[in-house]
Structures are given as C-alpha cells and as structure tokens.
C-alpha cells in the first residue's frame, strides 16, 4: 500500500516565536474557512510542551502545526487521510499546502512571521509502508527532487535523517533564497 501520511516543514527565518499568538489566528482560520478545501475542526495548544508540536490546527484531512521541535520553529503540514492522486502528485500537494499555509501565516499582521525556503523537512508518518531506510529513500528521492525543483528552482541536495525507529525523514536543501510567494508562483 502506498503511504500518504506526508509531512512537510518549513522553518521560520527568525528563531523565536510567541506560540500563544497562533491560537486566535488558527481559530479565526476555522471561523473564516481560510483553507477552503479542507475541513478544519479545532485548535490544540501544546505551547507548554518544550520542543513540542506547538499549536496545532486540527483538520479532518490534515493538521497544520506551528511546531517547535528541536527548538526550530516552523510550519509543519501533516496529511492524515488518503490522497486521491498518484505518488508524485501527493508529494506536490503536500508541499503546496505547506507553502500556502506559510503564505497565510506571513499575511497575519499579529504574527510578524516569515518563512525560509532554503530548507524543507519531509517526513512520512507510516512505518509500515515507508520505514526509515535506504530502500524508502531510494523510492522517494527522485520524486522529492522533482517537487523541490518545481517549487524552488535550483537543484536540491537531499539527506535522509533519523534512525530506523524514527519516521522516514529527508532534509532538503533547496538552494533557494526567495520567498514563499516566489515558490508558489514558480510551481
């Protein structure tokens, strides 16, 4: 079975972030259906957990985290349900949704957030279909390179990260220096 539980994280340009400011923003996204093609349900606040998921916008198809894992804040898109499309399209879609969420967050005047595009963390939360090993990496590498190039232009450099007991993860150095809007426009 093909894995679909993809996660894409883009990091903020400045390190610090006041997580509590995300809570009203995400509630407002639910109220005003800011992500119009997804069902958004609730907000989970884990700001009290060090290096944790931060503040989570819980949806039906996906969750959106302002995640502070490894003390590196970033927007983490996490698909939970199946994706109606092929493998490459599934990865493209995850990147696109992550970037669109970043763009929305950058537009929030209360946050003063900006996201970097030079680095992307890609993960698959499915140890059955995508164990963290060389075979999975070999299967995902071409698709990730294609997606990264499509959004960020330059040839990326990829590195598999973590151990086999952790979810499959790839750190992508995109070679880009532009904005989130640039990346979305390029695709």
């Amino acid at each position: 079975m093909q894995a679909t539980k993809f996660q894409v994280k883009l990091y903020t340009r400045a390190g610090g972030i006041e997580l509590e400011k995300l809570v009203p923003v995400f509630h407002e996204w639910i109220r005003n259906k800011k992500i119009s093609d997804e069902l958004l349900i609730d907000v989970a606040d884990y700001a009290h957990v060090p290096q944790g998921p931060g503040v989570v916008l819980i949806g039906h198809q996906s969750d959106y985290y302002l995640d502070v894992a490894d003390d590196r804040p970033g927007l983490l898109y996490s698909r939970k349900r199946g994706f109606d499309g092929d493998f490459q399209a599934g990865i493209d879609d995850a990147f696109q949704r992550a970037l669109r969420a970043c763009e929305l967050l950058e537009a929030e005047s209360s946050l003063d957030l900006e996201f970097a595009t030079d680095e992307v963390l890609f993960r698959v939360q499915d140890r059955l279909n995508a164990p963290n090993g060389d075979a999975t990496y070999a299967a995902y590498k071409p698709a990730l390179e294609q997606t990264s190039t499509a959004f960020f232009g330059a040839a990326p450099s990829l590195e598999r990260v973590g151990t086999e007991r952790e979810p499959f993860a790839v750190r992508i150095r995109t070679g880009a220096s532009g904005s989130v809007a640039d990346a979305l426009a390029k695709h």
């Binding site: 539980k5 884990y46 957990v49 944790g52 989570v56 985290y65 939360q125 499915d126 979810p167």
Partner: peptide, 15 residues
C-alpha cells in the same frame, strides 16, 4: 514507550 510514541506520531498529534 517506543511503540506508544510511534502511534502518537502516526495516528495522533505527536503528544
């Protein structure tokens, strides 16, 4: 604890 952690990541919100 490891398996519980895996499930938290794959099926929940990592908590």
């Amino acid at each position: 604890l490891e398996v519980l952690s895996e499930l938290a990541e794959e099926n929940s919100d990592s908590i």
